[in-house]
Design a binder for these strands. Structure first.
Length: 449
DNA sequence: TGAAATGTTGGGGCG
DNA sequence: ACGCCCCAACATTTC
């Protein structure tokens, strides 16, 4: 009997344009798919509630699609290094393939596994599957990484164009090995008591087929007017592919080339670029979710947390219509329009003076698309402590933002943001207080004498 | 991928 | 006809 080859699925829950699966299938060896829910390894961030919901359904979809092609998806829960080594032994696999991850704890796990398995003669291979450009390949003239988006993106475009997406493997050999798998329901990824996921079920269909369908719907219906309409949260003109990219139901290569084929939109492609830039930043600054990227922000004088203020923000009860609408969209659907994310984040940080890390955690728990790079990257961008956040003391006025981008109040009405509640803070006074607090950052920049 | 304050300009009302 | 003032509209600077 031919020894099988394992394909370890992680943030790439798809069959098309999956370099690891494609390479493994091309060997002709029997294929076994693996997914490990790792809640134990050091440094690996526990999934948020909305993420767990998405993962459950996306794994269900992937498992069905693989099964239709004769391939099993084996589920295991525990520390990845130990479990993968056990699976290699149990199956007698002669090789294992995976697509790279770029967070530090995950890279450490993968590096340890790869060298350990290779020492034992197992053919362990990592592939580039989830970014258009590997983070270490984008370098300044001085050989350092980038800290400003525009030159970063220019450098990306000077590199060879992203490769074309790989097709679904034309043929996959089923494995005869019988091997135990956890039952997905035992992982208890779905909320019960209470079941808060009704809005998510209405808003989303996780899984690769729905991801591909939405991408093409977006390209046909929305790309031509994207530059203008993308900023209006009521328009429905954004791609909504962020969770699909987060879970790897489609690859950025697929999105890139599909958009280019229909004439492209520099603006849309640049949005893929911001995703690349976030991962580039995380790769070179692994503490992105914990530490200020700009260390002078360590001097920012956060006042003691007022829990009531935080709860008002989380529940969408601030009395600021656009903020409340956004926070309710988030709670209801696990998603929020990008412009409204900027406004709600700015409000938390600069009008409530609550540390960006606390907002980042809430988004991490409630967004279906939060990943380890984009979520902290964007929070730091709004806070001013992050990459390319100039001017770092920018304060959004949520009333003006609503006038500009939701002029008819359509988005605000849709999400019940138009309450008669009094604002919990005075925008003018709190803005001034935030600017005063930013003075501490400015003075800490000055060299000591 | 800001906002607010400050500066500049030019048209029109009016003595 | 002319100068003066007001102020909206736009541009620039500052936070």
């Amino acid at each position: 009997m031919t020894a099988p080859v394992l394909v370890w699925f992680r943030d790439d829950l798809r069959i098309a344009d999956h370099p690891a699966l494609h390479t493994a299938a091309a060997t002709g060896a029997p294929i076994i798919g693996i997914y490990v829910l790792d809640e134990e390894s050091a440094g690996v961030r526990a999934l948020g509630g909305a993420a767990r919901w998405w993962l459950h359904h996306s794994l269900t979809s992937l498992g069905e699609r693989l099964a239709e092609r004769g391939v099993r998806l084996v589920l295991r829960r525990g520390p990845a290094v130990r479990l993968i080594r056990e699976l290699v032994t149990e199956t007698g696999a002669r090789g294992i393939h995976w697509n790279r991850r770029y967070g530090k704890p995950e890279r450490d796990i993968d590096a340890e596994l790869k060298s350990g398995l290779r020492d034992e003669g197992v053919d362990a291979h990592s592939h580039a599957g989830n970014l258009l450009h590997e983070p270490w390949t984008v370098q300044t003239g001085a050989g350092t990484h980038y800290s400003v988006f525009t030159p970063f993106w220019r450098a990306c475009q000077a590199l060879p164009a992203p490769r074309l997406p790989l097709p679904e493997p034309p043929r996959m050999t089923p494995a005869a090995v019988d091997i135990a798998s956890d039952a997905l329901t035992d992982w208890e990824l779905l909320p019960t008591a209470p079941d808060w996921a009704a809005g998510l079920r209405t808003a989303w269909t996780p899984g690769e087929p729905a991801a591909v369908a939405r991408l093409h719907e977006f390209l046909e219906d929305d790309l031509s007017d994207y530059d203008r309409a993308r900023d209006e949260p009521a328009s429905g003109a954004t791609s909504m592919i962020s969770p699909r990219l987060r879970w790897g139901e489609i690859s950025p290569h697929t999105a890139w080339h599909a958009a280019v084929e229909v004439g492209g939109s520099a603006r849309f492609l640049a949005e893929l670029g911001w995703r690349e830039f976030a991962w580039h930043t995380l790769f070179h600054f692994p503490a992105l979710a914990d530490d200020n990227l700009r260390p002078e922000f360590d001097a920012f004088p956060w006042p003691p947390l007022d829990p009531d203020m935080l709860v008002s923000w989380q529940r969408g009860e601030t009395g600021i219509p656009l903020v409340d609408a956004g926070m309710r969209e988030l709670w209801e659907t696990g998603h929020m329009h990008n412009r409204v994310r900027m406004v709600t984040a700015s409000f938390l940080i600069k009008n409530l003076l609550i540390d960006w890390r606390i907002g980042e955690e809430w988004f991490w728990d409630t967004l279906v698309d939060a990943d380890a790079a984009s979520n902290p990257f964007n929070w730091q961008w709004v806070a001013g402590s992050g990459a390319d956040a100039a001017p770092y003391f920018r304060v959004f006025n949520p009333i003006l933002q609503a006038e500009k981008f939701d002029p008819h109040g359509e988005y605000i009405r849709r999400w019940g943001g138009a309450t008669s509640r009094e604002p919990i803070v005075d925008l003018r006074a709190t803005r001034q207080a935030a600017l005063n607090a930013y003075e501490a950052v400015k003075s800490s920049q000055r060299p000591a004498r």
